[in-house]
Amino acid sequence: MSKIKMPRSSPSLDMTPMVDLAFLLVTFFMLTAQFRPEEAVAVDTPSSMSQSPIPMTNMLTVVVDTAGKVFWDFTDKGVRIAVLEELGKRVNYTPTDEEKVKFVNAGPIGVPIQNLRELLSLETGSERKAYMASHEGIPVDSTNNQLYEWISVTRNIFWNDAGHNPVVALKADGNTNYSRVAEVIRTFQSPGIQISKFKMITDLESSRM
């Protein structure tokens, strides 16, 4: 009799624990994945053997893209807003709360100070991206060195808040002419800010050696 009963019970396994596990893993991966913020500027950083990590907070980044356009970026919200307000004062521009939010979420900013108002009046991220693409970036020439303004304002605000200087990083595209990058480095060294230590952001090299 038992021989007849055997085939009736289906040979299927209880898959519940496996499903549980699979979904647990899926959920874990989905929740822990941090999406890389859409970059307003495409920068292909050169690779190096260096493995020292970069901090995720309190970092001032100066971005130089392939064409040599210069952008400013800061990691922390509060400082970004304060910088916008301070620079806005110089061109009689008082940003609204909505514009501040846009500025905070915009990532690297690369327009002359006088164009900030126009940039932040644009609604969508892609419009702002296009606007930055069609404008010149932060001027670094010796007669009108706005990058200097950006850096010194940021450092002052950060200093008043935290009591020390932010980490400064330079993120330049590998195909930028070095002479352009050197102009930025000269701005770092100019009297008044004198940043002599900074990080150059690179990709970790995998294939060489």
Binding site: V26, F29, S50, S52, S196, K197, I201, T202
Partner: peptide
Amino acid sequence: FILTTTMYKPSSLQMTY
């Protein structure tokens, strides 16, 4: 998810000028 995740690990060169 496992296959499309690329670990984004920028590193940096500390420079002293």
